[in-house]
Write a protein that binds this DNA or RNA. Structure first.
Lengths: 320, 320
DNA sequence: ACGCCACGTCGTAGATGGTCACCATCGAAT
DNA sequence: ATTCGATGGTGACCATCTACGACGTGGCGT
């Protein structure tokens, strides 16, 4: 490990001067050049650990997500990383599997590692971020609100679901079901509310047409099966995310149904699908934008932005 | 920030004793109990930063991958995380986008953060890991060998490609093309070699049937198009990863072709596909196992395992 | 029974690498 | 010659761990 003292003695100055040069403070020539040359020759890398300890602050942010294998969250992570990199921050990806215990462990880790802040993208668990807030760390919630008063980045779930459902209505579908996420998840209920509003506006009865899944493939398949095997099956469905949509499509296919004959609208794209049946209404979930917007809010707080918490709503687009 | 001194004074002992208790060294009662109680009451979390600085070692490993949005790498990451967590290590996910500059930046970051080691899953770039080795950090290569002599975890690409191609031959396909990754990537050429060997064994001529993509969807589509529009188009294809397979399927579909009439074998599963055409030969790439095996090797080195570098080959399975 | 020795355990102090407040010094300007 | 500004050096500090030293206790020998 080559330290700042090695560089200092090679350049014939004190460690403080090396620190100043490398942090962009004014230094008289030829010291600046000498230091830079010495650092270069020795391959010096300042120890971020020592720096963090002294400054009580690490240029690292935690991104806490429930499922790293869900494309929505990887896109989100992508957006966060790209934005964080611009400001020289590293991102630690923390995968909780929706386990509150793990989530709590990651909160503690963020504190213990002196991380500058955390982005929390919870799925079904209700989270208590007070360990982070007590330690004075910035926190931004993604995708839904948490109990504490926090900066939050969400998308317009209600409107998107309403618009997408309306498209299906206009296409002539009569009984439009909805498969959304768990009942206690804000995004899931917002999407269901949008669907319900559009259904009522069209003069239809939503009773018996709502299913709750867990945003994974299997639950989408099960929910669709339940609907199709019901007494009065639907002729279209609005699905709360792409994984459940894949499951739903499988259930439909096994009964010989497929879009565009059977109507479908989905939150999130199906880019991984080799053969996407035509006529599916795609609600483009702006995962990357969500990530970069959240990172921007967090970085602003880290840099000392004060004031009441803000909520940013990222626009969705309907691709019909 | 509650420090070790806060705990010490509350328990009426010195900071050294607190450190000893919390690190499992023997201490006479009632000190042990007093310290634990004090730590509990104060919600004390040892600063991993200070710890890292003192020990010249952080319980963190870097996982360096080229594309976080590729399902293969997220599965891999999943395997790494689960294994690392068992030993109390955190994982920092580093996304390089195949950019050697970024990769180098992450090497430097790993050194500067005193990380215990790094897992490198390169795609097309040739990497120089000497900055890490010079700093005495453990490194394990995933998916292909690097120039330096390193522990490596790979899968049996040659055999898998050979077996899968043979299955297609047995099913009666006559002209079997191959879409693999970039020429300078070991896994890509191994897969091509396996395909070529099987083709030759079957008494066929592989000339003109090999395409190189970049493991992304678009390149799969382009490669398939090129083959289908050729003078003597193939009736089957072996594809080097699932993203390119999706692209290839799209190209095929746009010409009215689809498995099982057109033969296909793919490295990696198509779990996200809602409607997978029947008859595709899936070569199950054990991404998660690859990740956990690599993590195990790395953790062993971190704990001081000596000796020549080892190469672990993880088995693939053919699902026909 | 007393003293000495050995062992076990706790506290002190130094080290880890970098930064910054404060101080000293040097040069220039009045 | 004196003062002021600019700039580099010194030393304290961040939180933790651990080598070393010191102290106390218990056992054994005389």
């Amino acid at each position: 490990m080559v330290t700042i003292y090695d560089v200092a003695s090679r350049a014939g100055v004190s460690a403080a001067t090396v620190s100043r040069v490398l942090n962009g403070k004014k230094v008289r020539e030829p010291y600046g050049e000498l230091v830079r040359a010495a650092a270069e020759e020795l391959g010096y890398q300042p120890s971020r650990t020592a720096r963090s300890l002294r400054l009580q602050h690490a240029d690292v942010i935690a991104l806490i997500i429930p499922d790293i294998e869900n494309p929505f969250f990887t896109s989100l992570a992508r957006g966060v990383q790209d934005r964080a990199r611009e400001d020289g921050y590293a991102v630690v990806l923390c995968n909780t599997d929706d386990d509150p215990v793990r989530e709590r462990e990651y909160f503690d880790l963020a504190v213990a590692e002196h991380m500058a802040g955390a982005l929390l993208a919870p799925a079904s668990s209700t989270s208590d971020v007070s360990p982070l807030l007590k330690a004075g760390r910035a926190v931004v919630a993604i995708d839904r609100h948490v109990d504490q008063d926090l900066d939050t980045v969400i998308m317009d779930n209600h409107r998107a679901a309403l618009d997408a459902t309306t498209v299906l209505v206009e296409r002539g579908f009569r009984r439009i079901a909805c498969i959304t996420g768990p009942e206690d998840v804000e995004t899931a209920s917002q999407r269901a509310d949008g669907w319900r509003a559009a259904t009522l506006t069209a003069g239809r009865d939503p009773a018996g047409l709502l299913e709750h899944g867990d945003f994974r493939m299997d639950s989408g398949r099960e929910a669709m099966r339940a609907q199709l095997d019901g007494a009065d099956p639907p002729d279209a469905v609005v699905v709360g995310n792409s994984l459940m949509a894949v499951g739903a499509l499988q259930a439909m296919a096994s009964r010989g149904m497929t879009p565009p004959d059977f109507g479908m609208a989905v939150f999130g794209d199906l880019a991984f699908a080799p053969i996407v049946p035509a006529g599916i209404v795609i609600i483009e979930t702006p995962a990357r934008e969500l990530g970069s917007a959240a990172a921007s809010l967090l970085l602003a707080r880290i840099k000392g932005a004060e004031g009441a918490s803000r909520t940013v709503v990222v626009e969705t687009k309907i691709r019909a």
